[in-house]
Structure formats: C-alpha cells, structure tokens
C-alpha cells in the first residue's frame, strides 16, 4: 500500500521548473530513495511534501488523505517528519529544548506548566541515547559539530513519533564512522515499521538501504523501480553522465 503519493506535482521558481509533474509513491514500511543529479528537484520535492512551499499544480496524498499545501506544522502533526539538507537547529536553545519543541500544544494551554515535562525529558533522553549523543543534552545547539547537527535533526524528527521520515542527504559530508552509525539507526528505525524517503548521493548507501528508488532529473521523475532495475537503466546513467 502506498503511504505517500505525489501525483503530477509541479513547482516553479520564476522561469525554472524545479519540480515538473512529478509522480511517484512510497510504500508503507519501505525505505525509498530519491536520487538524481544536483538541481534535479529533490529538495524541492521534500519542501512540497512537508508544506514548506506551496505547489503550483498536482496533488500530494498521505495515507489516502489529500495533504497538498497543508501548513508544515499540520503535516508534522499527521506524522511526517523531515530533516534539512543544510541542517537547521534552534541555535540559542539547548539540544533538549530543540527536542522539547515537539511537545508544545498549539494553543494558549502552552502557557500552563513548565517548559519540559518529566515524560518529555525521558523521551528526549531516550532518543538522544539511541543516537549516541545523550551527553550533548544541555549543550547549546549552535555549539554542535556538523555531524552532531545531523544527528540532532534526526533526533528532533523522532520526537514527533513519526510514521514517515524524510531525510535530505543524511550522509552528506559526515565521516565514515558516523555514516555507519546513521545507516544502522535508519535500519533500526525502519525495522519498527517506520517508512523512509531518503535523498542521498552516496550510491553504495542507496543500493544497500533502499527497497525502491525514484530517479529525478531536471524536475522530472525518470523512473521508479527496485535498485536492481534502476542500476541498469540507461536513462539513469545518462542523467548522471550528462551531469558530469
């Protein structure tokens, strides 16, 4: 069953068609990868799904429900979490506070009670321990290293208890040891039934993790298929060679 479906989604930036009638789907419980050369429209596709930008055309469905152009917070509350290619942390807030933001109710009732409840603290510490960064709990997030920020992004997503996680280049620029840890954690999370859509450039990683691969180039979806098929598809080779 498709958990997420993009149907003819289009997004223009002035003259540029960043995403051009893109159609693909993500099976429930799968790890699906979204690949393609730089500028193919992968991040823009993420932005349309998470509601960060509005589409110019097409439909996005999640669990059978139309979520096209929903506000980002509403998409998040439906259980879709995302990370950013260029990490965004709430710099003047501690790692714990970054995570506690997930527990804020969207109403005046947020005025009652303390910043972080005991159960939220426990949950945050559990997530941080799972990712191996529990020692950073009280560090200001702007003081974290690049790799630590990547982990914080993932931690923040886990705090919303997502059913689906969108990762934008989780392995981009991290050292091999950390890369292994991140891949291992993704696998572990996926084993609990959580669905992934991952943008990644590292082909080893993509081939190893993915159940399904979507290839984009120039805003268009070229093909969606299993790693074996995609690996040998001529259009995919062309897209990458054309780029080089």
């Amino acid at each position: 069953m498709a958990l997420l479906e993009l149907d003819q989604v289009t997004k223009r930036y002035g003259g540029i068609i960043a995403v051009n009638e893109a159609t693909f789907s993500v099976e429930k419980g799968s790890i699906t990868s979204l690949i393609g050369p730089n500028g193919a429209g992968k991040t823009t596709a993420f932005d349309t799904i998470s509601g960060v930008i509005e589409v110019d055309g097409g439909k996005i469905r999640y669990a059978g429900k139309d979520i096209t152009n929903l506000r980002p917070w509403a998409v998040t509350k439906l259980g879709i979490g995302r990370t950013f290619q260029v990490t965004r942390e709430l710099g003047d807030m501690t790692v714990l506070e970054n995570l506690a933001v997930a527990g804020v109710p969207n109403s005046f009732s947020s005025l009652l009670g303390g910043r972080i409840q005991k159960d939220e603290y426990d949950k945050a510490m559990e997530v941080l321990t799972f990712l191996g960064i529990e020692k950073l709990a009280n560090e200001l997030s702007k003081r974290l290293s690049y790799g630590q920020r990547k982990l914080l992004e993932l931690a923040a997503v886990l705090m919303i208890e997502p059913d689906m996680i969108l990762l934008d280049e989780p392995a981009g620029g991290v050292n091999p040891a950390l890369l292994d840890r991140i891949l291992d954690r993704i696998q572990a999370i996926n084993d609990t039934g959580i669905t992934f859509l991952i943008v990644e450039h590292n082909m080893d990683v993509v081939m190893r993790l993915s159940h399904s691969i979507v290839v984009m180039a120039h805003g268009q979806v070229l093909i969606q298929n299993t790693p074996e098929v995609v690996r040998n598809d001529e259009r995919v080779l062309d897209a990458y060679l054309g780029e080089a």
């Binding site: 998040t76 933001v101 804020v104 303390g114 923040a156």
Partner: peptide, 25 residues
C-alpha cells in the same frame, strides 16, 4: 518558563524549522 516561551524562542531562531517541528507559527 512555559512551552509557549519555547515555541516563541523557536520562532525567533528559525521560523521554518519551528513550523516543521510542529509549531503553528
């Protein structure tokens, strides 16, 4: 000292990130 303060500070830091974290900014 409340969750509202947490949300407001998140908005001050990065509105897009706050929104994606579930805050109705």
């Amino acid at each position: 000292h409340s969750k509202m303060g947490l949300a407001l500070r998140a908005i001050a830091a990065d509105e897009v990130k706050a929104e994606v974290a579930g805050i109705d900014t």
